[in-house]
Design a binder for these strands. Structure first.
Lengths: 197, 197
DNA sequence: TTGATTAGTGTACGTTCGTACACTAAAATG
DNA sequence: CATTTTAGTGTACGAACGTACACTAATCAA
């Protein structure tokens, strides 16, 4: 039909640029980046990438990346024989983990897990939880609550029409907490740990 | 001395905007966002945020966020009586998730945990592990190994002078793997999950 | 080989953006 | 209360940006 489509290759360059600068460049600099001599070429490319769902426009018509822009090959098991490289394809530029875990920076804070009361849901002592500061939580949410001047991480449950805080450790035999007064400080939206020494 | 400094508050709005759009807005839209009536105010604010190290300029003089822009406060428990705000808002330290979890982006990739064979060390099905690609691992490391064309996450142990792969699930009764040939693909340096619906 | 199709070129133009500059407003200090 | 300092206002202007449009180049299918 027509010319060969080099868009994937060009997208890769754009993704690298974004990884370095955290910014979609102007058509001019994108043209320079890709070796185009007319910035219209960059404009057309961007149009195609928009249609393909890699870029979108903000309310004020500026260019911004979409979630798809950040999709990276994750390692996938099973792997084809003798080809672990292909399955991994280590991306030189990784999506920012911050983007994955933090949606509203202004109300987000981190907290360290103390003790093993939430071990059944994979929250080990020393793990860091990502918390969004708000009072409204839903039943089933893991929340940060203020109890006797201590910040506690527990699952919010409902018992006989009352809210209670449930530890997640069958072996540890922790009691469900049914305080008279309880203040929800934040909702846990994620967690992480580092195995680095 | 002078007017109260509302920069932290304004920075928070900018950070939220960035989290939504992955883009630093123009001075005009930033002014609208913050309720400024002159875009010069936004320009001045941005200048201050540059000096403070939250923003920088790309080679073509466009505005981009710095690593510090992505730092989050870490709450400290226990809390002083009735003062949960202070523990969060006046944090001991600020940290960026990327800096914490990814030290060498070029050899780092992500992988999703399948199954519950590592549940005792807090790796639940669906969790994402951060892996650094390298062959040299130490005993006790959690590693990604290639076994029968499958990528497996296990703990590397030494048994009678031989290396072996140990699952971490006492209840599940998984066997220790003692393959004739085993290839270490990567070392797990971190893990995370999101509780978001 | 020809025709259809799509990528990139070159130029022109209106709009928006960033910056400069003089000015006003609000707080803290002495 | 006066002084000092810094945040925000208002206006103006050149430069950069995005877009439009006509044109050329490269590939594939018939």
């Amino acid at each position: 039909m027509a010319r060969p489509n080099r868009d994937p290759e060009h997208l890769a360059v754009l993704q690298d640029y974004y990884a370095r600068h955290r910014l979609i460049p102007s058509y001019s600099t994108l043209s320079t980046l890709l070796g185009f001599r007319a910035k219209t070429a960059a404009a057309r490319l961007v149009g195609r990438l928009e249609v393909a769902g890699y870029l979108k426009r903000t309310p004020d018509r500026r260019l911004a990346p979409t979630p798809r822009f950040f999709e990276r090959p994750r390692a996938i098991a099973p792997v084809r024989a003798g080809m672990p490289e292909a399955a991994i394809d280590a991306p030189a530029d990784m999506e920012s983990l911050d983007a994955l875990l933090v949606r509203r920076p202004s109300i987000t804070f981190l907290m360290t897990i103390k003790g093993d009361s939430m071990i059944d849901v994979g929250l080990m002592p020393g793990d860091t939880v990502v918390c969004e500061r708000r009072q409204l939580a839903e039943v089933g949410d893991i929340v940060v609550a203020l109890l006797a001047d201590e910040l506690t991480v527990k699952t919010l449950i409902r018992e006989n029409g009352r809210f209670a805080l449930k530890p997640e450790n069958k072996a540890g035999d922790y009691p469900v907490l049914r305080p008279d007064a309880m203040q929800i400080i934040a909702v846990v939206t994620g967690s992480f740990r580092s195995y680095r020494r």
